[in-house]
Write a protein that binds this DNA or RNA. Structure first.
Lengths: 237, 237
DNA sequence: GCGGGCTCTCAGCCAATTCTCAGCCGCGGT
DNA sequence: ACCGCGGCTGAGAATTGGCTGAGAGCCCGC
């Protein structure tokens, strides 16, 4: 599930003053096949935008020197239409961002989950680059998840999911056929500061099953005892 | 199944204060074709990281001076992106390691089995070096083991295995054609602190046979009386 | 400030797995 | 052909892992 084989990888500039964040984010995005560069403050960011010529900037609103919006303005001047994904502390200031990010492409509160981060990065690039191939629909068997509509269907029945359920299903579905450990799931789907044990995962799997593998339908969510879970058709035995 | 013939061997730095562990781990990794260096505490580790320039660090979280995470941070500074495989006591500290099953890093609880250790070391290096050759599928005759899906097939029949059965088969399969003694098998597949006798191996071989060499199929699991076992086609006699 | 939905923890239950052991089988040597 | 040792396997006890219902805390919208 890395970026399309032949095309040049999309370039992402990650700007945050906390090193743990740039570290985490750049690791994940590189792993997902993007070319990543980081900057720790506003001036460095503006400079990097000029030299690195990213396709997308992931930009913290709170920076030691210039604030995120200022950086945004200066970067905008340089490049015609450079999409931005803002990171904001998940608190009061969030509303402030509402108005100001209208021009921007998206924003998300910290702490976020990596699953969500990657999904949004992809979504923004899909929109601005007009990558047709990536339609934003993930499917396995008669189970379908539409990212644009944020809608899930089993057969022709629409399934109502809570945010966590949705993220979990999204992760499982984009890795259909592969077995994912509870630790992996926790690290991808839950916020990076989550610090409980992996039994939540069991609980949410249980919730998902009630909604997705109901009654007479074929069970698609499989437990692989001792390892983890996987989305796949039941195995003959 | 040592490292690819022509390429330089990958370099691994092993850090643990218990000598029995560094001893054990480095012996096995050397045997598997890696270049290994060891360090017994944090400061030595940081120093070794600079001079030895490893491709991967196997790092105990509990160290006498700096803790593993601190070492991680300092090492990170030195080299661009140096992947780490953490070793944690299989208890409380395990939660502190969150965020490591994505991208380049991973962790495993002590006590572990060598089979698993080697598998993870390989997996991490495969990710960062992009070694295509290692696809994660091991095959012998019509018997196939897929690491991603944790799935085993005999012909086109899917075989359901428990964790221990899976690990055992994995070990046999990656050493197909070679005769492995019960002692070797015990040392590789079972946790290093296991101390029962080797009759468990017999039991598990028996389980595997029931699932893999059934009925009219050619028996691939061979007993070599007085020595051990081997995966191979039956010999003419 | 109330109610409802969402998230997470926990404990009891059930099922799968692991390991031990004992008796039997059969290979290989004489 | 027989013996003895090594290996095979069934049964069962102990342990572990996973599922789910109940409920507490939290946040959000009204």
């Amino acid at each position: 599930m890395t970026e399309g084989g032949t095309e040049a990888p999309a370039r992402v500039l990650v700007v945050d003053d906390e090193e743990s964040i740039t570290q985490l984010v750049s690791t994940v995005l590189r792993y997902e096949g993007f070319a990543v560069q980081t900057a720790a403050d506003g001036t460095a960011a503006v400079k990097a935008a000029r030299t690195f010529r990213p396709d997308l900037v992931v930009l913290d609103v709170m920076l030691p020197d210039l604030d995120g919006f200022e950086v945004y303005r200066r970067i905008e001047g340089a490049s015609a239409r450079l999409p931005v994904l803002f990171l904001t502390a998940r608190d009061s200031t969030e509303d402030r961002v509402h108005g100001l990010t209208l021009g921007a492409d998206d924003y998300m509160g910290k702490p976020f989950s990596l699953e969500e981060l990657v999904a949004r990065v992809r979504a923004v690039l899909r929109r601005t680059r007009g990558d047709a191939e990536a339609s934003g629909v993930v499917r396995y068997d008669d189970l379908e998840l539409n990212e644009d509509a944020r809608e899930v269907r089993r057969g022709d029945r629409v399934v109502e999911l809570t945010p966590t359920e949705y993220n979990l299903l999204h992760y499982l579905l984009t890795n259909a056929g592969r077995v994912l450990s509870k630790a992996q799931i926790l690290d991808h789907v839950w916020r990076y500061d989550f610090n409980g044990d992996s039994s939540v995962v069991e609980t949410y799997i249980s919730y998902l099953r009630k909604k997705i593998d109901r009654g007479d339908e074929v069970a698609l969510i499989q437990t692989v005892r001792g390892f983890g879970y996987s989305i796949r058709r039941p195995r003959g035995r």
